[in-house]
């Protein structure tokens, strides 16, 4: 479903439109929230952030002003996640330094292009993850990209949380062996 389809649906039938918006961008928002909060927040913080983002977007989005929904939602997600991160940092007594301010920035393709070697390693890693096969590739991505707990992953891949942890550990070992010698 395209952005304009979603915006039209929001105008014609808001509940359906909101669900379509959520379905289309849920993964994207989850990934951004996880990226910003994974080292300081719990999975519940990430979920809460996702709820905040969509609630805010639904309440504020003007469907008569078509724009790039991805950019709009991406920006809302980053802002919400940073705000929650600040709050969590404050609670934990840690200070928000300059590095923290830029924490949510996803390196653009342009920046990465300047480092062809790094990009090549990144692509190689993705290839190796895919080569792990299922359920290991899903386990690795869900665990480290989306920051999900083993118990949650277990319900996705249908094996026990203990088995998820074990497979995750072994899969990382395989990736390390496969990428031995590559320089970051």
């Amino acid at each position: 479903m395209t952005d304009s389809d979603i915006l039209r649906l929001i105008t014609e039938s808001p509940p359906k439109g909101h669900r379509a918006l959520f379905d289309e961008y849920y993964n994207y928002v989850c990934a951004i929230a996880a990226r910003v909060l994974r080292d300081i927040g719990s999975p519940e913080d990430i979920d809460e952030c996702v709820i905040d983002v969509f609630s805010d977007v639904i309440l504020r989005l003007d469907p008569d002003r078509p724009e790039s929904l991805k950019a709009y939602i991406g920006s809302a997600a980053k802002n919400k996640a940073i705000s929650r991160r600040r709050s969590l940092l404050a609670k934990s007594g840690r200070r928000l330094d300059m590095d923290e301010q830029g924490f949510a920035a996803i390196p653009s393709g342009e920046n990465i292009a300047g480092n062809a070697e790094n990009k090549a390693v990144s692509e190689l890693l993705m290839k190796e993850i895919a080569a792990l096969g299922e359920p290991d590739s899903t386990i690795i991505i869900q665990r480290y990209f989306y920051s999900r707990k083993s118990a949650e992953i277990s319900s996705i891949v249908g094996i026990s949380p203990a088995a998820v942890r074990l497979r995750c550990s072994r899969a990382l070992k395989k990736l390390r062996n496969a990428l031995k010698g590559e320089i970051l």
Partner: peptide
């Protein structure tokens, strides 16, 4: 290193 790379990918890979 591997985990860092997964967690800090560029936009395209993201």
């Amino acid at each position: 290193d591997i985990i860092d790379l997964i967690q800090n990918t560029d936009e395209e890979v993201f």
